[in-house]
Design a protein around this nucleic acid. Structure first.
Lengths: 153, 153
DNA sequence: TTTGAAAACGAAGTGCG
DNA sequence: CGCACTTCGTTTTCAAA
């Protein structure tokens, strides 16, 4: 909690938007010398606050414009059942997120697909074969109003 | 639309996992000369296939361990209503995603918060004040099984 | 112990064959 | 498309506060 200060937060805010900024420019923007700034970034990486760097891609250009959310209820709450389900879930291609939700042992999955036909194929090939499923409900996103991974610090 | 070949896909797959890899190493891993590889990456950036680079942060370290999904039904479908709602939604802090869903003019929001109390505050301050809302339902994630932004190419 | 200046090293980007 | 060269950034070291 007290392991990151306000300057760290400024650094992280910049790096979330521009993960490839040069250390020299980053240092300028947070009013530090290059070496002091460099040491802070290294420390944040070592602490695991920065887990890595990623290129952000345009889904549309790559033929995955469609986001689908799938809600799944399992037939029970036994640990074995959940483990088997989760193992199978991890094998689904283009599955971006899977959350175990509070309440009724529901899972919420987020997938990105080419089109409805592509989703039908994924459904047949993967979703319909998931073990221990009692109920499943899929919802398509018509339009994404906002989508980011950047935390506000 | 945009023509990308198998080598581009290999480049993108690597850059999604390691956005700060050096051009020299990237070139080696895809069996290209440094200059050829460099030109491809530049082209992908220029085409908008690569939209940027981001540091990935650990939410837990930064005190935002809790993911909440909020489903909202509006009281109508008038363009004005949607626009007013979306404008207000964009002002919510720690809102990572907002999707307009097919079906019943539902919105699905994803937020990351410190704890349930923090969510209660955000609810009071922002969610409860959104215009045109007929129904709202919030669900907490107990555990995140999988979470990535990386597309499988 | 922490900081900044600067050197040494390595990578990126350009232009030319 | 590849090579070589120039420029620029990173990273280490060292000295000082």
């Amino acid at each position: 909690m007290t392991e990151t200060d306000a300057t760290d937060h400024r650094i992280l805010t910049i790096l979330q938007k521009n993960g490839r900024i040069t250390n020299a420019e980053l240092a300028q923007r947070v009013n530090l010398s290059a070496s002091a700034c460099h040491r802070r970034v290294q420390r944040l990486e070592q602490l695991g606050v920065i887990t890595g760097y990623a290129a952000m891609l345009d889904r549309r250009s790559l033929g995955r414009p469609t986001t689908v959310f799938v809600e799944i209820t399992l037939s029970g709450q036994a640990t074995e059942l959940l483990e088997g389900f989760e193992r199978a879930v991890r094998a689904i291609p283009d599955m971006l997120e899977c959350h175990l939700m509070a309440g009724t042992a529901d899972y919420l999955l987020k997938l990105v697909v080419r089109d409805t036909e592509d989703f039908a194929r994924i459904h047949r090939q993967y979703l319909a074969r998931l073990p221990g499923v009692a109920q499943m409900h899929s919802s398509f996103a018509l339009r994404t109003v906002a989508e980011t991974t950047a935390l506000q610090l």
